[in-house]
Design a binder for these strands. Structure first.
Lengths: 233, 233
DNA sequence: ACTGTCTAAGAGGCTAGGCCAGTAGTCCTG
DNA sequence: CAGGACTACTGGCCTAGCCTCTTAGACAGT
C-alpha cells in the first residue's frame, strides 16, 4: 500500500450502476401502479424482461430494496410490499435531491442533542478520553492550517459512541453522509473552526461533569452556530 | 373486509437467505481483519471462492453492504471500506439482537417529540384531518374491543407526515418496525388504550393550536406513559 | 360434504461460466 | 526521461440452468 494518495477524497465521480437505476425505476413503478402494502411485485423473470436486464441484476436491485425496507422477498411467493407504504416515496424524495440542508440540520440537531445528553449520563472514562483526543486532533489540524474536518467528525463520533445507544447510533450513521456536506460548508467560514473547538470544549466539559442538561444545551448551541451557513439562507 | 384472520401477524417464520449470512460474515471479517476506512476488501472472485458461493450471490451481499453504507464498490478497483469505520460494528450489533427495547423507546422518544413540535409548526389543515381521523379509527377499534393498534400506528404516521421532514420521516421509518413490538406490548395492558387515546387527543389539540412547545410536552408525556411496560423492567 | 394427500405450475435461490469495461502498474518506445 | 501502449488485475452484467419452496387444484378416502 505504501504512500497511496494523501486523502482519498471520497466519491470521485459518477458511478452509474444498473441496479441503482433499477431501484429508482421500481420505486417509480410502485408509485405509479398505486401499489400498497401487501401487494406483490411482478415476478422476477417478468420484471427482468420488461426492464431489459438479467435476473441476476434485478436480484441485486431487489436486495437493495429489501435492505431499504421497501419490500420483503419471499421464496416461492414473490416480492411483497412491506407494511408502511409511504416509505418508497420518502426514499425516492431523498434520492432526488439529497441536500435538503434545513431538514438535515434539523434531524442532526434532534439526534445529537439527545446523544449529548445520554453521553453525559453514560460516558465511561474511556469514552471521555476519546472525546478529548478528538478535540486535540481538531486543534492540531486547525493549527496546521486546515479546516479540522476530520477532528470535528471524530468528536461527534466519540460523543455518539459515549451515548451507548446502538439504535440512535445507527440513525446517526444513516444521516452521517448528509451531515458531512453541512460540516464542510460550515468549517469553511472564517474564524469558524476556532469557535467550533471552543464549543466542543464546552460540550466535553458538561459530559465530563455528567451534566446531562448542560451537555444538551451546549450541543444545541453548537449546532445552532454551525448551522448558520450560507446554504441555509 | 370479510372475516379473514383477526390480525395479519407479519413475519411468518425464518427466511434464511445466503446473502444475509454473507453480510454477517463479511462484517465479521472486516472486524477481525482490523480493516479501516479506505481499505479494500479482497477481490470478488477471491471472496466468492473463499466463502464457497457464486460471484452472483456475493454481489448481492456487496449491494446490501453498499446500501447499508459500509462499503463503496468501485469498478476496476474493488470494494473500499467507507469512512465512518464503526458502522459495521453498529449494524452487526443491531442484527444480533434487534430488540433492545429501552434503546428503541429512547430513539422513538427523541424523534417523535421533535416530530410533534414540528407538526405543530407546519401542519396543514389536511394534516390535521388525518390526525383527527386516526384518533377516530382508534376510538372505534377500542370500542369494538380491540387494542386499537392500527389506529395508534395511523396516528403516529399522521403526526410524522405533518412534520413535513423527509429526513426525520425516513429515520422514523427505520425504527418503525421495532416500535411495533413496543406498541403491541403497551396496548395490551388493561386500561391502556383509553389512556392512549386521551393523550393522543392532547397532542392533537396542541398541534391544532400550533403550540409547538405544548405538542412536544404532550408527546413526551405520552411516550413516557406507553413506555411503562413490563418489558422494560 | 368434508378432509387430507398428492401433484404440478410457477415463484425465488443459487450456481457456473463467460464476456465486457474500467483501473493502474509496467514496460516499451521515441 | 517522458509518454503511450500493454496487460493483468478489478468489478459489471449476462445467459442458461437446476434446485427448493409455495400454493392451488385434483383426487382420493372418510
Amino acid at each position: 500500500m505504501a504512500k497511496k494518495s494523501e486523502v482519498p477524497e471520497l466519491s470521485r465521480v459518477s458511478r452509474p450502476r444498473l441496479y441503482e437505476q433499477l431501484v429508482a425505476q421500481l420505486l417509480d413503478f410502485i408509485e405509479s401502479a398505486q401499489l400498497g402494502p401487501g401487494d406483490l411485485l411482478p415476478a422476477e423473470r417478468d420484471l427482468a424482461e420488461r426492464l431489459g436486464v438479467s435476473r441476476a441484476t434485478l436480484a441485486q436491485a431487489l436486495v437493495a430494496l429489501e435492505v431499504l425496507g421497501v419490500i420483503d422477498v419471499q421464496h416461492g411467493t414473490g416480492a411483497v410490499l412491506v407494511y408502511r407504504p409511504n416509505v418508497p416515496a420518502v426514499i425516492k424524495g431523498l434520492r432526488e435531491h439529497r441536500s435538503r440542508l434545513p431538514e438535515i440540520v434539523e434531524a442532526r440537531s434532534t439526534l445529537e442533542v439527545k446523544l449529548a445528553e445520554l453521553a453525559a449520563a453514560r460516558r465511561t472514562d474511556q469514552d471521555m478520553q476519546a472525546i478529548d483526543a478528538a478535540i486535540d486532533v481538531m486543534a492540531e489540524e486547525v493549527a496546521a492550517g486546515s479546516k479540522g474536518a476530520r477532528g470535528d467528525e471524530l468528536f461527534h463520533q466519540a460523543v455518539t459512541a459515549a451515548a451507548h445507544s446502538a439504535v440512535l447510533g445507527q440513525l446517526m450513521a444513516f444521516i452521517a453522509e448528509m451531515i458531512l456536506e453541512t460540516r464542510l460548508e460550515s468549517l469553511g467560514q472564517p474564524g469558524r473552526p476556532e469557535q467550533s473547538i471552543a464549543s466542543h470544549r464546552k460540550i466535553a466539559d458538561a459530559i465530563r461533569a455528567k451534566d446531562a442538561a448542560g451537555a444538551a444545551e451546549a450541543m444545541m448551541a453548537h449546532i445552532d452556530m454551525v448551522s448558520d451557513v450560507d446554504l441555509l439562507k
